[in-house]
Amino acid sequence: MKTGELVRLRALERDDVARMHGWFNDPEITRFLGYSFPFSVDAEMQWYDNLQDPKKRDKVLGIVDRETGTHIGNVGLHNIDWVSAHAEVGITIGDKRYWSRGYGSDAMDVILSYAFSKMNLHRVYLRVYDFNLRAIRSYEKCGFVREGVQRDDYYCDGAYHDTVIMGILREEYLNTGT
């Protein structure tokens, strides 16, 4: 797998689960991911174990700061459709010290390169909530195009919010010259 300028991606290990359990119970992070009830380390471990099933159509990798080796977040391809050759990408920078510093965009570039050049996918898409402007800006920087808005699709903090759908095709990614 190619290495980014700031990050590299690696397989998740059991030792990472406790760290991820902290991220995915933090409301400041989960409000960007969709509703979930507070969940246990056991539930997180079960999620991890399910991920090891090679038939599963989700592949999730850890994002590591190249300089320090710190595991700072995850990026994954979900709902992989081998016939239509597309997948949904999801990304979380769990370590907030790395927010707004280009680490997410760098990790996204690595996973897009992997999706198109190694997995032979032809399209990658994502869903992002309308209030997550930091993420939308970063996805646009990566070359994603806004394809639609699902109105009142998400309920959070007492109100309905829209979900924005963004997509990028292989030829668009290759033409950005990254």
């Binding site: 239509s84 050759a85 032809h122 898409y125 195009v145 394809e147 699902q150 997509g167």
Partner: peptide, 12 residues
């Protein structure tokens, strides 16, 4: 129903 978007080339 209202058309909310088009996912380009998402079905083979």
């Amino acid at each position: 129903f209202v058309r909310e978007g088009v996912m380009r080339k998402a079905r083979y």
